[in-house]
Simulated scan of single mutants.
Amino acid sequence: MPFLHSLVAVSRMMRHTPHIGADLPPDDTVRLDAPDERLAAASTGLLDGDFKPVSELLARTRETAWWEARDRYVGWLAEQHLIAAGRSGPRDAPGRSWLDTWWDADPDDPDLALLHAEIAVRGAWRTGRGHVARLHDAGPQVRTAAEAAPGDPVPWRIALTRARGLRAPREEFDALWAQAVARSPHHYGCHVSALRFLREDPASPPEEYLAFAEDAAERVLPGSLVNALPLIASYEYLLSGGRGADSYIDDAVDRALQLSAWHERGDREPAEVRNVLTQVLILRKRWPEALDQFRAIGIHATSFPWSRTGEPLHEFLEMRTGVRVQLASTVRLTARAGGPYA
């Protein structure tokens, strides 16, 4: 009998998997950490040293207090710079980048200062045992970015990330957090950085960062990304081997599902939240909802959370296929292929 059950299950999967999720974007169209249309258009000339469209876009985010996009844009630009620098290799002659050209044109630009701070801190995290020294060295750049744009919360998100890497005392965290919320009480990036500091603080029990996330989500409007903070906390809790928070996790998932429904499908802004939500749904074996989130994600795979378990794009595509297989295994063998479940 066990052999027969296995044979039926395999037959179900072979029959129905091609039809379940057939409306998902093909594997070769999915992009990892792709920029939105504005940033994609502005960054087309960077390889030729044309920084002006990017500088104008970042200036617009600062002038209009479009902090979530500003944070996302700065992170993407810093990542592209670090990837290009790593690709050149230590033996290559250092070439002039679009950042150098920008520096020559306007060394006091606050948006350039912010980029330098992000590159310094993000790059420091990648140096293994030497990251603490490099994070110390990044201090002046972070301070310069904060002073150059006094109302901008993004330098304080960078400062919180730096403090986490330095294992800063709680008093320093509290001071940085106060500066961040004074500039933008509901900035998603600052909240995520603060959550991660609390999670890694040996003096902070899991109950503290879980409560921090829930309290933050209670204070924001329905479309705010901060509604996803309990989901991020739940994911970190599950990965750390936490047990006994089922009610909290299920409430966090439901809140994140509402947030996802609030945004248009395929929207780049909530893409990272949707990717985390999908992985948590998979961990909770909520297969139909996971498939629906893959539809909402569209082509926008993100490094977090998939990099936690392997090469991110590969993991995203493997998990997407796995969800389709799981759903196919639940369909009757005699059901019409491509039926209402598709």
Results as ranks from 00 to 15, higher is better:
residue 140 P to Q: 04
residue 102 W to E: 13
residue 184 S to G: 11
residue 169 P to R: 02
residue 174 D to Q: 09
residue 192 V to I: 15
residue 101 T to Y: 15
residue 62 R to N: 10
residue 59 A to T: 15
residue 134 R to F: 01
residue 176 L to S: 04
residue 56 E to D: 15
residue 87 R to H: 12
residue 48 D to F: 13
residue 174 D to H: 07
residue 121 V to I: 04
residue 119 I to H: 06
residue 176 L to P: 06
residue 141 Q to E: 14
residue 123 G to I: 01
residue 121 V to F: 02
residue 151 G to V: 14
residue 75 G to M: 10
residue 94 P to W: 14
residue 140 P to S: 06
residue 80 Q to H: 05
residue 123 G to Q: 01
residue 84 A to H: 14
residue 183 R to L: 14
residue 73 Y to S: 13
residue 50 D to L: 10
residue 169 P to F: 00
residue 73 Y to R: 10
residue 50 D to W: 11
residue 119 I to F: 04
residue 110 P to H: 05
residue 164 R to P: 00
residue 170 R to W: 01
residue 191 H to K: 06
residue 108 D to H: 14
residue 79 E to A: 04
residue 135 L to S: 05
residue 140 P to Y: 09
residue 76 W to V: 07
residue 114 L to P: 03
residue 72 R to W: 14
residue 180 A to K: 08
residue 87 R to M: 09
residue 151 G to A: 15
residue 93 A to F: 11
residue 150 P to R: 01
residue 113 A to L: 01
residue 121 V to A: 03
residue 117 A to N: 09
residue 123 G to F: 01
residue 168 A to D: 07
residue 106 D to G: 13
residue 109 D to L: 08
residue 111 D to Q: 06
residue 92 D to G: 14
residue 87 R to V: 12
residue 149 A to Q: 01
residue 159 A to P: 06
residue 99 L to D: 03
residue 54 V to L: 13
residue 94 P to N: 12
residue 183 R to W: 13
residue 144 T to A: 03
residue 192 V to G: 13
residue 82 L to Q: 10
residue 161 T to M: 09
residue 156 W to C: 07
residue 163 A to F: 01
residue 136 H to G: 05
residue 113 A to Y: 00
residue 78 A to M: 04
residue 183 R to D: 13
residue 185 P to Q: 05
residue 135 L to G: 05
residue 92 D to A: 14
residue 72 R to C: 15
residue 161 T to P: 04
residue 150 P to A: 00
residue 102 W to C: 15
residue 183 R to C: 12
residue 74 V to R: 11
residue 119 I to Q: 06
residue 167 R to Y: 03
residue 186 H to D: 10
residue 70 R to K: 09
residue 161 T to K: 11
residue 77 L to V: 04
residue 76 W to I: 10
residue 74 V to S: 15
residue 166 L to V: 05
residue 49 G to S: 12
residue 70 R to Y: 08
residue 157 R to K: 11
residue 174 D to S: 09
residue 104 D to P: 11
residue 148 A to S: 13
residue 80 Q to D: 09
residue 52 K to D: 15
residue 139 G to T: 11
residue 133 A to G: 06
residue 111 D to E: 06
residue 129 R to T: 01
residue 64 T to I: 05
residue 188 Y to M: 01
residue 54 V to R: 03
residue 168 A to G: 08
residue 80 Q to L: 03
residue 117 A to T: 11
residue 85 A to D: 07
residue 111 D to H: 03
residue 143 R to Y: 09
residue 92 D to K: 12
residue 162 R to L: 00
residue 138 A to Q: 02
residue 81 H to N: 12
residue 176 L to K: 07
residue 165 G to N: 07
residue 78 A to N: 02
residue 168 A to M: 07
residue 130 G to E: 04
residue 166 L to D: 01
residue 144 T to N: 02
residue 87 R to F: 08
residue 98 W to Y: 06
residue 116 H to D: 00
residue 153 P to V: 07
residue 182 A to S: 11
residue 68 E to K: 03
residue 152 D to C: 10
residue 170 R to D: 03
residue 187 H to S: 02
residue 118 E to N: 05
residue 156 W to Q: 12
residue 176 L to N: 08
residue 133 A to Q: 10
residue 48 D to K: 14
residue 95 G to N: 11
residue 116 H to S: 00
residue 131 H to I: 02
residue 159 A to Q: 08
residue 75 G to P: 10
residue 78 A to W: 02
residue 100 D to Y: 07
residue 132 V to Y: 03
residue 84 A to I: 15
residue 190 C to R: 02
residue 68 E to Q: 09
residue 171 E to L: 12
residue 48 D to I: 10
residue 182 A to P: 05
residue 73 Y to T: 10
residue 131 H to N: 05
